[in-house]
């Protein structure tokens, strides 16, 4: 009886070893294959990707109104547009009333009028280009708008961070509210505020502040969630109150990230602010609207070049500033 059981377990063991060896051999064979075998799952994934791409292209291909009949037409169309943009021009205001004020006190006021000078035999107009005024206004809007967003995001981020939120329900409600804020683009905020407070750069400031507060709060909250809890506990262990603990352990850890994100949002707000003028909310957008509306593509390219310079300078300055805080 005993013997029978022993042989039984022995054969069991042998088949187990055989199976193991078989597995090792299959593994070796798979690893040695230069081209992996197609799995059903892989084929299905590839097929899905192809279908999604085909479906996407089918919905957005050129229509009859696009006047594209041959493969070369799009290139010809873009070429035409480029030739109409060249050479770039800079609109010169007939007269610009320059007022220099210092902390609200008017220092001096003068007029810059358009005049024509002869430069090496070429007639050149000199004066004040309105695009400069518009670029400065755009930067001002971005600075004030970002400041507004930061001021709103600081307290909100405390509620939206899991580790500092006073109650899970409040955390969920805050997150829901932020998602709502975030799902509305800046341009829609601009349209709403134009209706509410009228035209002008202040409307743009409101649009930028409300347009970025949703996502800015989210990244602030994630910065707070990333902090080291051990440092917080160590401060709490000294007997500090919750506000003291916050000021001495949470803020010092999250501060560099706050600054860094605020600067990144300022940069992106400069770029976002350019479009807001399209709906009358100040900045270079109004000029772009004017130039595209009148098919004045030479001036459009001129304005675009000025903006390239401005955005590049701002990016360089702010990334240098950001490195100081990290």
């Amino acid at each position: 009886m005993n013997n029978a059981i022993d042989t039984h377990t022995a054969t069991d063991k042998n088949t187990a070893i055989d199976r193991k060896l078989q597995e090792v051999e299959t593994l070796r064979a798979t690893l040695l294959r230069p081209i992996p075998r197609f799995s059903t799952r892989g084929v299905l994934v590839m097929l899905t990707i192809v279908l999604v791409l085909a479906w996407s292209f089918s919905g957005v291909g050129p229509s009859a109104t696009n006047r594209i009949t041959s493969f070369f037409d799009p290139f010809i169309a873009v070429g035409n547009l480029i030739t109409r943009m060249l050479p770039p021009e800079f609109e010169i205001a007939r007269s610009h009333n320059a007022v220099i004020t210092l902390f609200g006190v008017e220092v001096t006021e003068f007029q810059i009028t358009r005049s024509t000078v002869n430069l090496f035999g070429n007639e050149v107009e000199i004066g004040w280009p309105p695009i400069i005024t518009a670029v400065f206004e755009t930067v001002q809007m971005a600075i004030v708008g970002t400041l507004g967003a930061v001021l709103m995001a600081l307290p909100l981020s405390l509620l939206a961070a899991r580790n500092t939120s006073p109650h899970p329900a409040l955390y969920q409600v805050t997150r829901l509210f932020l998602n709502f804020m975030r799902s509305i683009p800046e341009l829609v905020y601009a349209l709403l505020f134009v209706a509410a407070v009228g035209l002008g750069p202040f409307t743009g400031v409101l649009a930028l502040a409300f347009g970025s507060v949703g996502s800015l709060t989210r990244v602030f909250a994630e910065a707070i969630e990333q902090i080291d809890p051990a440092q917080v506990n160590a401060v709490r262990a000294t007997g500090a109150g919750s506000l003291q603990t916050f000021v001495y352990s949470v803020i010092p850890q999250a501060f560099p990230l706050f600054i860094s994100y605020a600067i990144i949002y300022f940069e992106s707000n400069v770029r976002h602010a350019t479009i807001l003028g399209y709906v009358g909310a100040g900045g270079v957008g109004f000029l772009l609207f004017k130039y595209t509306g009148t098919s004045d593509y030479d001036n459009l390219l001129g304005a675009a070049l000025v903006m390239v310079v401005a955005v590049t300078v701002i990016d360089r300055l702010s990334s240098r500033l950001r490195q100081r805080f990290i």
């Binding site: 070796r28 690893l31 040695l32 294959r33 230069p34 081209i35």
Partner: peptide, 12 residues
């Protein structure tokens, strides 16, 4: 990502 059988044999 293609390595021929010799390279794979050495690695294995």
């Amino acid at each position: 990502g293609y390595f021929n059988a010799q390279h794979r044999a050495v690695a294995l």
